Measured scan of single mutants.
Amino acid sequence: TEYKLVVVGAGGVGKSALTIQLIQNHFVDEYDPTIEDSYRKQVVIDGETCLLDILDTAGQEEYSAMRDQYMRTGEGFLCVFAINNTKSFEDIHQYREQIKRVKDSDDVPMVLVGNKCDLAARTVESRQAQDLARSYGIPYIETSAKTRQGVEDAFYTLVREIRQH
């Protein structure tokens, strides 16, 4: 089974770092803004072998026109913010609204991801993020692309959301 996953969120929150940590098991430290990259990885989730087709997208506003296209083809979405960047957390709402509009559905598989949880300088409390996820009816997972904490959990949870859909 193949799953088309799309990673969305503001610029600099760590979308590529999360994806590369999942696929290649290493942490990319330097920031190089993405336009669009796709990665494929075969994994076993709950005993089922599946192929993850992951689209890593641009957070930069100037590429926002490309969003409709990949939102149409994606089956599930990782909505990523950084726990030390309140603005990126506030941006999640717009991504969710755009996904709902493009998919013409209120019920699209999504996982809210709070990345950079290895950093002490948190400005978005776990509780705020949990409340937001609960209001959307989606899971919330904290990750660190640096330490790998929660990385597999985030992507695998999204696959489970798609399966249950």
Rank of each mutant, 00 (worst) to 15 (best):
T19Y: 03
L5C: 11
D56S: 00
E62N: 14
G76E: 00
A145V: 15
V8A: 02
G9N: 01
S126V: 10
G12M: 15
V6F: 13
D37F: 00
V151I: 14
K103L: 09
H165I: 11
I20M: 02
T49H: 05
L18T: 01
Q98R: 05
R148F: 13
L22P: 06
T19F: 03
Q69F: 02
V80T: 05
L51P: 07
F89L: 03
E30S: 07
A82I: 00
D91Q: 07
E90M: 01
I99H: 02
V159W: 12
E62K: 15
Y31C: 04
Y140H: 08
T123I: 10
L52R: 03
F27C: 07
G59I: 09
V159K: 15
D53S: 01
D46Q: 02
A17L: 01
D91R: 15
F81A: 06
Q98M: 12
V124S: 11
E30N: 03
I162H: 04
T57S: 06
T143F: 07
Y63N: 15
Q60G: 15
T157Y: 12
T86H: 12
T157V: 13
Q42M: 00
M66V: 10
L5F: 04
R96F: 07
Y136E: 03
P33R: 12
R163G: 08
Y140C: 11
L22T: 15
D131V: 09
Q128L: 12
F77H: 08
S64Q: 11
R160E: 06
F77E: 05
K15D: 00
Q60M: 15
T147I: 12
K100N: 09
L119I: 13
G14H: 01
S16D: 00
R163K: 14
F89C: 02
V43M: 01
N85Y: 07
T147S: 12
K100E: 02
D56Q: 04
K100Y: 02
Y70K: 07
L5S: 01
H165G: 12
V8N: 04
Y3V: 02
V6G: 05
P109A: 07
K15G: 01
V80K: 04
S105T: 09
E161Y: 03
D53F: 02
Y63I: 10
H93T: 09
L158P: 09
K116F: 15
L5K: 00
D46I: 11
C50W: 12
A58F: 08
V108K: 05
L51N: 04
L158S: 04
C79W: 03
R127S: 07
I35T: 07
V7F: 06
Y95K: 07
R67A: 12
I138P: 04
T1K: 07
L51V: 05
Q149E: 13
V124K: 11
Q69G: 09
P139V: 09
K4E: 01
L55H: 09
A145Q: 05
L55M: 11
Q94M: 10
A129C: 10
G12V: 15
K4W: 00
V159A: 08
L132Q: 01
Q98A: 06
P139T: 11
K100M: 09
L112Y: 05
A121I: 12
E161G: 12
D91S: 08
C117Q: 11
T34Y: 00
I54Y: 01
R72C: 10
Q60A: 15
Y3W: 09
H165F: 13
L78P: 01
G114S: 11
N84C: 05
V44R: 04
R160V: 14
V13T: 14
E75M: 10
L52N: 07
Q128E: 13
H93L: 09
V108P: 08
R127I: 14
Q60Y: 15
E161C: 13
Y136S: 09
Y136M: 06
E2Y: 00
N84K: 02
I92C: 05
R163C: 13
A133R: 10
I141V: 06
S64H: 12
N115H: 15
H26Y: 08
K116V: 15
I23R: 10
D107T: 04
G47A: 04
Q128T: 08
I99V: 04
Q94E: 10
E62I: 02
L51R: 07
I141C: 11
D53M: 05
S64D: 10
V13W: 01
E61N: 11
Q94L: 08
A65I: 11
I138D: 07
G137C: 00
I99A: 04
Q24L: 01
I162M: 13
I23V: 06
N25P: 14
Q69T: 06
Y156Q: 14
L5N: 00
C79P: 02
T143G: 12
K4M: 06
A133H: 03
G76Q: 02
V6Q: 03
R163Q: 13
S88V: 02
A145T: 15
N84W: 07
T19S: 08
A17Y: 00
S16R: 00
I92R: 03
M110A: 01
D153G: 10
V13A: 07
L158D: 04
F81G: 05
Q130S: 11
D118E: 14
I20T: 01
V124N: 13
Q98I: 05
R101Y: 01
Q149F: 07
S105H: 07
T19E: 10
R96E: 01
L112Q: 13
P139L: 08
Y3T: 12
T34C: 02
G12A: 14
D32P: 02
F155V: 15
D53G: 05
I162F: 09
V124F: 14
T143E: 13
A121T: 09
G11V: 15
L119K: 12
V44K: 03
R160T: 12
R67N: 14
L52P: 09
M71W: 11
K100D: 00
E75G: 02
P109Q: 04
E75R: 04
V8F: 13
S38T: 06
D131Y: 09
E90C: 09
V102W: 07
I99M: 03
F27H: 09
E2F: 02
Y63K: 14
A121P: 13
L158E: 06
G14K: 00
I54S: 05
I23T: 05
E75F: 11
I23Y: 13
K87S: 06
A129R: 09
R163W: 08
V151E: 14
D53H: 00
E142H: 11
D29E: 03
G150Q: 11
K87N: 04
S144L: 14
K116P: 02
A145S: 15
K146G: 15
K116G: 15
R134I: 04
S38V: 11
V159F: 14
R134E: 09
V102P: 01
H26P: 01
Q60K: 15
E62G: 11
M71Q: 11
L132I: 03
R160W: 11
V28F: 11
N85W: 09
A65S: 05
K87F: 04
C79E: 00
R134V: 14
D118Q: 10
Q60W: 15
V108Q: 02
N84I: 12
G12N: 15
A65P: 09
S126Y: 10
D56A: 00
Q42R: 03
G74N: 08
S88Q: 05
Q60L: 15
A120G: 13
D29Q: 01
R40L: 00
V44G: 05
I141M: 13
P33L: 01
R127K: 13
E2C: 08
T147K: 09
L51G: 04
T34G: 01
K87D: 07
Q164R: 11
S88G: 07
S16P: 01
D37I: 00
T86R: 04
Y156S: 12
G9A: 05
T73A: 08
D91V: 09
A17M: 03
L22N: 15
F155G: 10
S38D: 01
R127D: 09
V13H: 14
A121V: 13
E2D: 01
V43L: 08
E75C: 09
K87C: 03
D106Y: 02
F89I: 07
D106K: 12
F81I: 02
G114L: 12
A121M: 04
T57R: 09
T34W: 00
